[in-house]
Design a protein around this nucleic acid. Structure first.
Length: 466
RNA sequence: GGCGGUAUAGCCAAGAGGUAAGGCAGAGGACUGCAAAUCCUUUACCACCGGUUCGAAUCCGGUUACCGCCUCCA
């Protein structure tokens, strides 16, 4: 089956066919780096990283570009407050972003362009738009004229005449039309600025993405992604800028992820209910956070509460435990090669189901349910009197594959116990043999305090970290 | 006002014409020296009202509630 992607442009699922066989160009709108990111910023990072991982699993070579907006009012204000330079603020929060998102299992982008490094391209882009009659300069500002561009509104499905534009003109602006938006802003006295044909200034917000996409991925890209609030005006404006310039389609598939609410309310400054990704990572296992995010389809809203995260932790533990129990059972398995066909077939069918789920617009919620199905099957298998190493391996390999696609495999590394603990486990075994259960339980409790949990199975003691 | 989204068990969440996946929590049972883990069993008038259909959470029309975007925002 082919991959189906819900395309905001047409509001329906479409078969995904990249321009070039085997290659995917993908651009994701990144953060404005003026603060630590909140969990709302973490969602697109995780979701589109998972999209990328799945495309790579399917054999595509993915060029994944995520930008950093490092020139912006908010950064300038932050710099004014702390006395640092804009560059320093930006550097600090770019590093923080990469750390946070890295902890959540997000792979590094192939490029992380910054506005500061793209200034020449941005200026050239704007100049060309002026030359082509889509933009005009007024006293050092440059504005784009959406009314000049035929398809304006095609992404957000807004009619240009229905837009409520009353609030759009601010005092001191010199737009010809309230709909016009800034490509270049004239510098105020002491602000950071760059030279341009229209004097010192800095770019508007939307133009950077158009310029970066063109610079790093070309005129038409396969996938453009971001939060659904970016649909309008940001992405709409990107299309207007880029397509006016090139005359070619800007992006072929537009993907937008849903919002995160906190206790059923939008995160907002007035409610003061922002949850910083950083704080959450310090308080919870990052993989549980990622698992939680992926347990809901990316286009649906997620409500975040501590209780739901706790529930996600228990859920994810079930999968982890099954994987670890397979590992333990491996040592008491036989190396026969026959009689395993039924199980191997079953395991293969899970693979197919997993792919079916992911093919269907990256339905991670269903993909995770396949992970639970295989977990149950594996649990049943290892309870049999006799097991085969080959089947155990196949179970584990399938689980690893699924977990890797979801970016959740980091925990599965081998862990070792130190000698002291090994000795205690051995002592407990002896105590149990001689039916000295008091001593056995004492040791079990003692280890539990050290976060080592012992479980007695027909195949001997099994331990795990609590 | 325009555009879009959401309403499914105590909770979370898939499903998009053939009478409801999965997980968490709860209850009962099995296994265990006791536990743990696991297995088995168990819980749904799919927001409301009409319509189409042999058949509708699923399609159409309407209603209600909530949410997002239209202004910086993931």
């Amino acid at each position: 089956m082919s991959i189906q992607i819900y395309n905001t442009l047409n509001q329906e699922k479409e078969e995904f066919i990249p321009q070039q066989a085997g290659k995917v160009s993908m651009y994701v709108c990144g953060p404005t780096v003026y603060n630590y990111i909140h969990i709302g910023n973490a969602r697109p990072a995780i979701v589109f990283d998972t999209v990328r991982r799945y495309l790579e699993y399917k054999g595509f070579d993915v060029d994944y570009v995520l930008n950093f907006t490092d020139v912006d009012d908010k950064i300038i204000n932050a710099a004014k407050k702390t006395g640092e330079t804009v560059q320093e603020i930006a550097d600090k929060y770019i590093n923080a972003y990469l750390e946070d998102v890295g902890a959540l299992g997000v792979k590094k982008a192939t490029h992380n362009p910054r506005v500061m490094d793209t200034m020449d391209d941005i200026v050239a882009f704007i100049q060309e738009l002026i030359d082509k009659g889509f933009a005009y300069e007024v006293e050092g500002d440059v504005y784009y004229k959406p009314r000049k561009f035929d398809g304006y509104g095609k992404l957000s499905h807004q009619s240009i005449d229905e837009l409520r534009v009353g609030a759009r003109i601010q005092i001191g602006e010199k737009k010809e039309d309230p709909l016009d938006f800034a490509l270049w802003k004239n510098a105020k006295d002491d602000e950071i600025s760059w030279d341009s044909p229209w004097g010192k200034g800095r770019p508007g917000w939307h133009i950077e993405c158009s310029a970066m996409v063109k610079k790093h991925l070309g005129e038409t890209i396969d996938i453009h992604a971001g939060g659904q609030d970016l649909t309008f005006p940001h992405h709409e404006n990107e299309i207007a800028q880029s397509e006016a310039l090139t005359g070619k389609p800007f992006a072929r598939y537009w993907m937008h992820n849903g919002y995160i609410n906190i206790d059923n309310e939008k995160m907002s400054k007035s409610l003061n209910n922002f949850v910083l990704t950083r704080d959450l990572i310090n308080a919870h296992d990052p993989e549980v956070i990622r698992f939680f995010m992926l347990s809901v389809h990316y286009r649906n809203p997620i409500n975040f509460t501590e209780e739901l995260l706790e529930s996600a932790k228990n859920s994810f533990n079930r999968i982890k435990t099954a994987y670890q129990n397979l590992e333990h059972r491996k040592h008491s398995s036989m190396n026969l090669v026959n009689d395993a066909d039924n199980w191997m077939e079953k395991i293969n069918s899970f693979k197919q189901e997993f792919e079916n789920a992911m093919d269907d617009d990256f339905n991670t919620a269903n993909a995770i349910s396949v992970l639970f199905d295989i977990t149950k099957e594996a649990n049943q298998y290892i309870q049999q009197d006799q097991t085969q190493a080959k089947v155990i391996d196949a179970f584990q390999a399938a689980m690893e594959t699924f977990l890797h696609i979801l970016g959740l495999e980091a925990w599965s590394k081998d862990e070792l116990l130190d000698e002291e603990i090994e000795a205690l486990i051995e002592e407990r075994n002896e105590a149990r043999k001689s039916r000295n259960f008091a001593r056995a339980d004492e040791i079990r409790d003692q280890l539990k305090e050290k976060n080592i949990i012992l479980e007695d199975t027909p195949q001997g003691v099994r331990w795990k970290r609590g």
